[in-house]
């Protein structure tokens, strides 16, 4: 019992050291620009279709689902504002982050895990390349910067989905729809949600890398690393979200 508790704390300590190392090494040259851009391409551009489809469906479904309740109150004209508000504040960041956790975190975990198992990481160290700098820093940085941009796309596409959803039942001009959305939004809705996504991105990358980097020897540990990366990343997204919303609520 005490041993397992100690193990848990040791893992958390290791992860903290791992996370701290990122902030130290990100400023230390050599900067792996080429690898960073490549990772950005894989993480950002390649995830876009997935995020776009999810965002569109979320906007559409959210509109259709909230419509009956608002109609009951005779507040159907508030539908665009409400959908945009819930999309931008909560749903688009969290759904996008979860999708990325599934797609990116598992990918990174499996990739680094297999590199670790096949001793490629050790080989890098031997050939005087810092594996942390080359593999981990580029991936975490790419994640941190790309997830917010994916969230912007999800917001925009979700709003278009909401427009389609509204036009299933009624007829609203697109310009009028956009005006209603802009009217209901404030900076307070956009800025905290955006800051939150950087943390999502950072934790998705960091957990994927940590799980992969610390995979034990053996082929099955690759699968385990990928699996636990997804689970931990998803869980951490919800925890970060809760903390972020509480902090926002506290200050504003």
């Amino acid at each position: 019992m005490i041993l397992s508790l100690k193990n848990t704390f040791e893992q958390i300590g290791n992860a903290t050291v791992f996370a701290k190392r990122f902030f130290k090494e990100v400023f230390i040259p050599p900067y792996e620009v080429k690898e960073f851009l490549k990772q950005c391409y894989y993480i950002g551009y390649k995830s876009l279709p997935l995020v776009a489809i999810t965002g569109f469906i979320m906007g559409l479904v959210l509109t259709l689902q909230s419509r009956p309740t608002l109609v009951k109150f005779g507040a159907e004209s508030w539908l665009p504002g409400m959908v945009a508000l819930s999309l931008i504040r909560e749903i688009a960041p969290v759904i996008t982050a979860l999708i990325c956790a599934g797609k990116i975190s598992s990918g990174i975990g499996a990739e680094l895990g297999s590199m670790k198992v096949t001793e490629q990481i050790d080989a890098m160290e031997v050939s005087a390349i810092n594996p942390y700098n080359y593999l981990v820093v580029t991936r975490i940085l790419a994640c941190t910067l790309m997830v917010p941009i994916l969230v912007f796309f999800a917001d925009a596409i979700g709003i278009i989905g909401g427009y389609v959803g509204i036009n299933i039942h009624g007829d609203v001009n697109f310009y009028r729809y956009l005006t209603q959305i802009i009217q209901s939004l404030e900076f307070l809705d956009v800025i905290p949600a955006t800051i939150k996504t950087f943390f999502f991105g950072y934790f998705i990358g960091m957990i994927g890398c940590y799980k992969g980097f610390n995979a034990s020897n053996g082929t099955e540990s690759v699968g385990r690393a990928a699996n636990s990366a997804v689970v931990t990343a998803s869980l951490s997204i919800f925890i970060i979200d809760m903390v972020a919303v509480q902090i926002t609520d506290l200050f504003f």
Binding site: C40, Y41, G44, I149, L150, F153
Partner: peptide
Amino acid sequence: KLGMFVTIGL
């Protein structure tokens, strides 16, 4: 593609 993605997002 990456440039386009980032530009449109921003």
